[in-house]
Each structure stands twice: as structure tokens, then as C-alpha cells.
């Protein structure tokens, strides 16, 4: 599973960590995040994220 970076604020979503603060379990792939999940740092939507190679 790859990490994704928020283009707005630079937050990196790491699927191994998930986003427990927003109710996202560790081990959740970025693709499996709910459509209305928001960047926990700046509130940007999923479409503002870019996959890190």
C-alpha cells in the first residue's frame, strides 16, 4: 500500500498508521478511505492527494 501526500499542506497519509483521529483504522489503504474523508491537517478532500512513488 502506498503513501499519499496532501498537495495543499504536505500531510502524508500513511496506510500503516491510518488516521485514528478521524476514525480510520491502521491498515486502511488510501483508496479505501471514505469519499468524504478530509486531510486531518488542512481539511482538503481526497482529490487533493497525490500518490508517492
Amino acid at each position: 500500500m502506498s503513501k499519499w501526500e496532501c498537495l495543499v499542506c504536505g500531510y502524508i497519509y500513511d496506510p500503516e498508521m491510518g488516521d485514528p483521529d478521524s476514525g480510520i483504522e491502521p491498515g486502511t489503504a488510501f483508496e479505501d478511505l471514505p469519499d468524504d474523508w478530509l486531510c486531518p491537517e488542512c481539511g482538503a478532500g481526497k482529490d487533493m492527494f497525490e500518490e508517492l512513488s
Binding site: P20, D21, S22, G23, I24, P34, D36, W37, L38, P40
Partner: peptide
């Protein structure tokens, strides 16, 4: 505790 954030966000939006 923001663990309900995603759910609350949906309730509101």
C-alpha cells in the same frame, strides 16, 4: 477526541 470526526462530518454535510 476526534475519532467521530468522519461520521460527524457526514451527519452535517
Amino acid at each position: 477526541d476526534r475519532s467521530d470526526l468522519a461520521a460527524v462530518n457526514q451527519l452535517v454535510s
